[in-house]
Design a protein around this nucleic acid. Structure first.
Lengths: 363, 363
DNA sequence: CTGAAAGCGCTTACAG
DNA sequence: CTGAAAGCGCTTACAG
């Protein structure tokens, strides 16, 4: 049995000797049906290899049981883990998962959202590449489409979101370095976006007190804030020349910039690398410079990538709960899809500092 | 403008003062339409924030411009890179990408395929978890659905596929070790499946000459074949006790088994680790045993993971062309979807041996 | 509990 | 070049 999966409800109904309405009721598991009728229809369906056409059903019900995700790059371990978390909850609810990469490019993001909307997804999880320029996302929400923001937020868009408490997390990592008597701690981050007042202005404000509305700041800037706060609370001055602004989100770029950075005579005694991809570049640069970790240079990274554990020495790092982030985002989205109308939930997850062997006491 | 994306073609047609057929023609870019009419319709569409409902279109055309992928685990760097390759070609053709994890579990795979079929994907890329028990995949092909197999093949299913030339690749890696005078080379692989004749029988056959029909063998067994072939061609005997069968696809499991393996008095002088995940376990075990690579133990891995390059010493490895594998699979699938009826293409991609610092001359 | 009819939002012949 | 009508494969009221 079961061949040619192009049988329709009409075919099944005909073979079973019932109306399409009845056949539809038993095959779609809605409405009433007599035990006997059900058996007949099921048998006919089996004989014909009937398979529901979700398209037709969705056209009527207005629900596709499919959600869309716009991620920066599914190949990046950060997103890969988050996606796994999303996929786990989505799959357990028998939903489909449509995934598109944005490469952190606004035009691609807009195109991706459009594609997903045309396919009528029931909801969207987006890691927005631009926190201000995001009218397409605001429109989505205004149209009532369930939407969850991931990793970043968007100004003027009050929807469910899951982010990491980057400030506290970075502060914790830098504190560990300060506790080991380091006073010249380099900060390595992409710090891509241009902020008003520039880097110097930002540092000045960050040192004067906690910056308000840090929500829509990009993660690397938030982490810089944590770096500043750790210094401020320890009563330590900040040397702006120790802030290494890579200016691109790539391990190669980080390697190059950090290479020059640590080859200067007044190089830092420790480095705080603000991201997994940056960290790869840092490790390469440090190794190329022939510096030993932690003896000649202490190191704390961000995001616990597989290799940080077995690299020798183990890399102390701030671990983001990646899978849990994905699970949380997906769970909230499904709740919205199921009609929840609670106020927007700004889920900010804590990151855990993992102490390993990359910090030495500064002499 | 552009709000409420629930306007239909009928709404646009009404506002533009034309028939739905005409509105459909201009919005769907098919059939003829006068320049003037087109302008009117476009303006009405813009005013209403019209967006195509791909569901309705697909129901008629029978095409969804969406493909499905069943991967083992999207979080695994092997699959993550392949998926990126797939996504790149799919996105460039304006197709959607539906992804499901199988966790290498047959029941989940069957469920995944079913979900994707109900959503009417135009084609499927599957890394089958079972090379024999795969009637659901054979049925797919019999039904005429475009299907491409990834990484593994299925016996009795002659469709497009992209695999790696595992035998040659592994042979090349082991050769490098033999060339450095190693005679006691351990092989670490999951070797999950039970083959007739067991491991011993397999080794015996592998040493007698090239095993026929290696196609449907699982990758780790193919790689073992490469290990055997390298020995045979070098005139070296094979000690079965050096073949470390992990029996599970997990770094943890590999770490445990390899830990015991290399703590024995007659431990190998070199290790060939047959997979990225196994390699993680191997590195942890080696490091826990306090052995120095390559001085006390030489090492060659499989699949070039990020860390293999910057781990010190660099890990010599056999690199699989992951992104290219995904691109190739997706390209072939789209060709089939576009009607290509050439004979099934068994694409077997070469893996490149990357020499770094993990091999020392055996004293 | 079942069936006839309408309709979801499009595209496709078919006339004109 | 345009429109009226039918139809893709389902589900949804509405009668009975």
């Amino acid at each position: 049995m079961a061949k040619k999966s192009n049988a329709t409800i009409a075919d099944v109904a005909r073979l079973a000797g019932v109306s399409t309405a009845t056949a539809g009721r038993v095959l779609g598991r809605y409405g009433y049906s007599k035990e006997e009728t059900r058996a007949q229809v099921m048998e006919a369906a089996k004989k014909l290899g009937y398979r529901t056409n979700a398209l037709a059903r969705s056209l009527i019900t207005g629900k596709t049981r499919t959600i869309g995700v716009v991620a920066g790059d599914i190949q990046n371990p950060f997103y890969a883990s988050i996606l796994r978390g999303i996929a786990d909850v989505v799959e357990s609810h028998d939903f489909g998962l449509l995934i598109v990469n944005s490469d952190e490019n606004l035009q691609k993001e807009i195109g991706a959202v459009n594609l997903l909307l045309e396919k009528q997804v029931d909801g969207l999880i987006v890691s927005p590449c631009d926190t201000r320029n995001a009218q397409h996302l605001r429109d989505l929400h205004a149209d009532g489409l369930p939407l969850v923001l991931l990793d970043r937020t968007v100004s003027g868009l009050d929807v469910d979101r899951v982010t990491v408490d980057n400030i506290t997390a970075a502060e914790r990592g830098v504190q560990a370095l300060i506790a080991a008597s380091h006073h010249r701690i380099g900060f390595v981050g992409e710090l891509l976006e241009d902020l008003e007042g520039g880097l110097d202005g930002f540092v000045k404000r960050g040192l004067e007190g906690d910056v308000l509305s840090t929500d829509t700041l990009y993660p690397s800037w938030q982490r810089l804030l944590g770096y500043l706060r750790a210094h401020r609370r320890a009563g330590l001055p900040v040397d702006c020349s120790l802030i290494c602004r890579v200016g691109a989100y790539s391990a190669k770029a980080a390697e190059k910039v950090v290479g020059e950075f640590i080859n200067k005579p007044d190089r830092p005694t420790a480095l705080f690398s603000n991201d997994g991809t940056m960290s790869e570049g840092v490790i390469r640069a440090v190794s190329a410079a022939g510096l030993t970790v932690p003896d000649q240079l202490s190191l704390v990274c961000f995001d616990d990538l597989d290799w940080m554990d077995f690299l020798s020495p183990g890399i102390s790092t701030v671990a983001q709960p990646r899978s849990a982030m994905g699970e949380s985002a997906a769970t909230m989205l499904l709740e919205r899809i199921n009609g929840s109308e609670v106020a927007a939930r700004p889920v900010m997850m804590p990151a855990e500092f993992i102490e390993r062997g990359s910090i030495a006491i500064c002499q």
